[in-house]
């Protein structure tokens, strides 16, 4: 019988040795899985992360918006929009969009994947500390990727001039929003405790 501290209420409870079941704190009914069975937490993160990685493909391949300006339809993917921004000399805005829409989601997905893979092989305190910093960075950076989604949704509500100009979200926007949400959820589901778990002897 191991003993664990409930991450939510702080109460101590006993956990059976073969901890392969989903356990709840007897006091507040919070799941105890994070502490007691790191494997469970990690598989959830993997699931969310893989979903995010899958949706990252259509989010970049499909148009993020369909625009009709003076009867001429045009649609653009995220990368196309960034290229347009750079092309028209708006380097700063282009760089921000590129960071928020391409780099950050990709770094989050790769970073979380790295954490998940490396978590069982961590040895030194320095390595664990570095991983924990990486995790913090990933978690705090998460919502910033929503910039793109906000831009699209604001533009849609503002640019509606009937035949002159109209703007509607493309399938890429929905995929992109899902990528951002899934990576946030994955980062939240990742339990940093696993970075500090002492490998079980024998």
């Amino acid at each position: 019988m191991k003993r664990v501290i409930c991450p939510r209420c702080g109460g101590v409870c006993g956990v059976p040795e073969e901890a392969r079941k989903r356990l709840l704190c007897p006091g507040c009914k919070a799941p105890l899985t994070e502490n007691s069975t790191p494997q469970n937490s990690i598989s959830r993160v993997w699931a969310l992360l893989i979903a995010a990685a899958i949706l990252y493909v259509p989010a970049n391949l499909l148009p993020i918006f369909d625009m009709e300006l003076l009867g001429r339809p045009s649609s653009d993917t995220i990368l196309g929009g960034i290229a347009d921004l750079f092309g028209s000399g708006m380097w700063f805005v282009g760089a921000i969009v590129f960071l928020a829409s391409i780099v950050i989601p990709l770094l989050k997905i790769l970073g979380l994947g790295f954490l998940l893979i490396s978590t069982s092989r961590l040895g030194s305190v320095q390595a664990r500390l570095a991983s924990t910093r990486l995790y913090r960075a990933i978690e705090s950076i998460g919502p910033w990727s929503m910039i793109d989604v906000f831009v699209v949704s604001l533009t849609i509500s503002l640019v509606q001039f009937g035949r002159l100009a109209s703007f509607s979200p493309g399938p890429g926007a929905a995929c992109f929003a899902m990528v951002v949400i899934l990576t946030i959820l994955a980062a939240r589901s990742f339990d940093p405790h696993t970075l500090w778990a002492i490998p079980e002897e024998n």
Binding site: M1, G14, V15, P16, K21, R22, L24, K29, S36, A47
Partner: peptide, 16 residues
């Protein structure tokens, strides 16, 4: 020490 409550069967996780 109170014992943890078993929430359910271990099996396929819905998150997948």
């Amino acid at each position: 020490v109170p014992e943890a409550v078993v929430a359910g069967r271990h099996g396929f996780q819905i998150v997948w």
